[in-house]
């Protein structure tokens, strides 16, 4: 059972769930985009493409940001747009260098909000040591966009000896997580219309390039890196299991989670494993190197609560298995549809 689904040919329209980072997103990417654009650089389907230019390897990636609300505790759409692309580059082991920024702005959008967003982008970029070197602006009619959409693309240099890909997980490897999950997802949900609840929780939105540099200083035996954004930890681990053709085993009680996040999830009937994160990474590391890498992560401000949460095995192929607190096991599947609170 749990066969991977075939193309949803019966659907004639794009649904919101196509963008949720779950099974339907995955299917849209593989059955439409990859099929149309197929080439050896795209095919690995990692967070960024790896280009070989002038004898060096470069990581190249792009992402668009459409968050509501635009300003949230711990960040804003601008910070998110910079961190997201920096993190995507970092997940191929690259040192992020240059970014582009494209703005699609709805007619009537507040100029002071735009100024605040731009200032936040510059602050984040310079703190992370990257430059925004090109850009574009479009203004659309009122109703043609929801306030502001931002696209960023970036390139970064991949150091010699680094070979990181979602396809590199090997049985015996350890699974490391850089900190608590679900912080961003719950911080955003707490502000959504109709769902406002008070929390002091902040989004974990952060650039992870320095953390990755330090991890790679300790060991080059880091096989996979991925940031569990949309679709959460669950989708990220499933993607890695599929790309590498391995089974990933995770211990539920080792996954760091803040009490506030756990509480909000209990109340709303949400699974923290599928909530978005914007400043966390999953690393799959050779067994011998795992402990050293973990210690280095824990010494970094963005990895203080890092933990080894599981390991890679041969079986079950392309699946993630969660051992619950009761010591029993179950399959941890990808997200399906929009993650929404349920009736009761």
């Amino acid at each position: 059972m749990n066969q991977r689904s075939t193309v949803s040919s019966s659907l004639e329209k794009i649904l919101l769930a196509h963008g949720s980072g779950g099974e339907l997103s995955h299917e849209l990417v593989t059955s439409l985009f990859v099929k149309a654009f197929r080439n050896p650089i795209l095919d690995p389907l990692d967070d960024g493409a790896v280009l070989r230019i002038g004898g060096k390897r470069w990581a190249f990636t792009t992402d668009s940001y459409v968050v509501t609300p635009i300003f949230f505790p711990g960040g804003d759409i601008g910070k998110l747009a910079i961190c997201g692309t920096i993190n995507d580059l970092s997940m191929s082991g690259a040192k992020p260098l240059y970014l582009s920024a494209g703005f699609i702005i709805e007619e009537g959008f507040s100029l002071s909000d735009l100024q605040a967003i731009v200032a936040s982008m510059q602050e984040t970029a310079s703190a992370a040591g990257v430059k925004i070197v090109t850009g574009d602006t479009k203004v659309v009619n009122r109703g043609g966009a929801d306030g502001i959409f931002i696209n960023t693309a970036g390139i970064g240099a991949i150091p010699e000896g680094v070979n990181i890909s979602g396809r590199n997980a090997r049985p015996g490897d350890r699974v490391l997580l850089s900190g608590t999950i679900g912080d961003h997802g719950v911080a955003i949900l707490s502000l959504r219309e109709g769902l406002q609840f008070f929390t002091t929780l902040e989004s974990d939105c952060a650039p992870l390039n320095q953390l990755v540099v330090e991890m790679l200083e300790v060991s080059k035996d880091i096989h996979c890196l991925r940031d569990p954004t949309r679709g959460g930890l669950s989708s990220t681990l499933n993607e890695l299991a599929r790309q590498s053709g391995v089974g990933i085993w995770v211990e539920e009680n080792r996954i760091p989670i803040k009490e506030q996040v756990q509480g909000a999830c209990e109340l709303l009937g949400l699974d923290p494993l599928i909530l978005a994160n914007e400043g966390k990474l999953v690393a799959i590391v050779a067994e011998e190197a795992a402990e050293m890498v973990l210690q280095r992560m824990q010494a970094h401000p963005f990895g203080r609560e890092a933990a080894i949460i599981g390991e890679v095995r041969e079986e079950p192929i392309e699946k993630v298995v969660l051992r619950t607190r009761l010591g029993l096991t179950r399959i941890m599947d990808m997200v399906v549809g929009e993650p929404l609170p349920r009736i009761c």
Binding site: M1, N2, S5, T6, S8, S10, L11, E23, L24, E27, G269, R330, I331, D333, V336, G337, R342, I343
Partner: peptide, 23 residues
């Protein structure tokens, strides 16, 4: 769950969705 034919595969609480999702 992506292409549900019946409601038990749609709802988070549905028996089919639970059996599919968790085995």
């Amino acid at each position: 769950p992506d292409n549900p034919v019946g409601p038990c595969m749609v709802s988070f609480e549905g028996s089919c969705a639970a059996a599919y999702k968790y085995g």
